[in-house]
Amino acid sequence: MKKTQATIVDIAHALNISPSTVSRALKDHPRISKKTREAVKALAKELDYQPNPLALSLLNRRTHTIGVILPEITHHFFSAAISGIQETALAAGYNVMFCQSNERQEQEEAAATTLLRNKVDGLLASITRETKSDEHFEAFRRRGVPVVFFDRAPETQGVSKVVVDDYDGAFQAVEHLIERGARRIAHLMGSESLPISHERLQGYRAALKKHGLPTDEELIGYTNIEREQTRAATEKLLALPQPPDGIFAFNDYIALFTLQLLRERKIRIPEDIALVGFSNDPLGTIVEPHLTTIAQPAFEMGQTATRILLEQIEAGGDVEVEPTTTILRTHMIVRGSSVPEAEALL
């Protein structure tokens, strides 16, 4: 026989008090006597009473759940952002539903539909490298559900975004290579559909220009953040009559794979080619030489995006919220892939 879940009415009946008194006692309302509060809580524990989130959501028209759509959960950057999101949401009394798009717009759209049907109170999203339309995100806004983008944000106007200064991070990386003596610096670019790819490309170009170095288009390789395209782009660079003496990669995933290819070719790192990544993946400290990288505050980004979303949720759908763009700073971590190990340790 199925066991019936205890309700506030059951507790009220057993103690001969009103359901409203039980509700206030469970919330430690100061107008309820200590004796009554203790009796209510003791019986609630004995009956294994659990609040009904569905009933509460019907009462206040909120589910106290936020949705999150991101390209991949296993990537270190996104897993760190998830930790920041979850910590901040739980502290505010919200649950989190995570959906992984696997870098596919079709899956991103399906996830958006699922979250809308589950009536999340707000959405955090980081788009895929395929995303060309934001109509599935507009569906949230039409229903008064706030949306905040983090890291990978579309060029959509009128929504809040939390990003890092990709331009400056790329500038730091390339300037570091120039200061180490590199003059033919290649860039292994990310997906051309992602705005952050273009921000990092512009940072690369700006650093070259500042130091009086020309931008050689044949030194820009297109990877689409995929393994085989990275291999093809790297081999094309190495086959040039004048191959690069420095490489700035869109992210650490591309940089680590490139490092592997260079070592297969017996190319010395950093003596023949210096290498810098972006994102500070822990794998960068396992390989030899250790990877120089641009560190992003992923955990802080998750926290910040969640706080902004919760503020918009609490403001209510009837209140016009001014969209904001929050830009977080990056910093360089110098390791052995761009300077000899002995210098990197100084």
Rank of each mutant, 00 (worst) to 15 (best):
M1P: 05
K2R: 15
K3N: 07
T4R: 10
Q5Y: 07
Q5C: 05
A6V: 06
T7G: 07
T7D: 11
T7Q: 10
V9H: 08
V9Q: 11
A12P: 06
H13Q: 14
L15N: 08
N16R: 14
P19C: 13
T21P: 09
S23T: 12
R24H: 15
K27S: 15
R31H: 15
I32G: 12
K35D: 14
V40Q: 04
K41S: 10
N52F: 11
L58H: 11
R61M: 15
H64G: 06
T65V: 14
I66L: 13
I69M: 06
L70K: 07
I73R: 08
T74Y: 07
H75M: 11
H76S: 13
H76V: 10
F78P: 01
F78C: 01
A80G: 10
A80Y: 02
A89Q: 09
L90D: 13
A92P: 10
A92D: 11
A92V: 15
V96G: 09
F98R: 02
S101Q: 09
N102S: 12
E103M: 09
E106F: 05
A110R: 11
A111F: 09
A111I: 05
L115N: 10
L116V: 14
K119H: 11
V120P: 00
V120L: 03
V120R: 04
L124F: 08
A125P: 06
T128I: 02
S133F: 09
H136M: 15
F137S: 00
A139Q: 12
F140V: 04
R141A: 11
R143N: 07
G144F: 05
V145N: 03
P146K: 07
V148N: 03
V148L: 08
P154D: 06
V164F: 04
V164D: 03
Y167P: 01
Y167N: 04
A170K: 03
I178L: 06
E179L: 10
A186R: 02
H187F: 11
I196R: 00
I196H: 03
H198C: 14
L201C: 06
G203N: 02
G203E: 05
R205M: 14
H211E: 08
G212H: 12
D216C: 09
D216F: 07
D216H: 09
L219S: 01
Y222I: 04
N224V: 03
I225R: 01
E226M: 03
T230E: 04
R231N: 07
E235W: 10
E235K: 13
L237A: 02
Q242Y: 08
P244I: 00
N251M: 00
Y253C: 01
A255E: 00
L256M: 05
F257I: 04
L259F: 04
L262A: 08
E264P: 11
K266V: 08
I267T: 12
R268P: 08
E271S: 12
D272P: 10
V276I: 05
F278Q: 01
F278S: 00
N280S: 02
G284M: 00
G284P: 00
T293A: 00
Q296P: 03
G302C: 10
T306F: 12
I308A: 11
L310A: 14
V321P: 10
L328C: 10
H331W: 13
I333R: 00
R335P: 01
R335G: 02
S337N: 03
S337W: 00
V339R: 01
E341W: 13
A342H: 13
A344M: 03
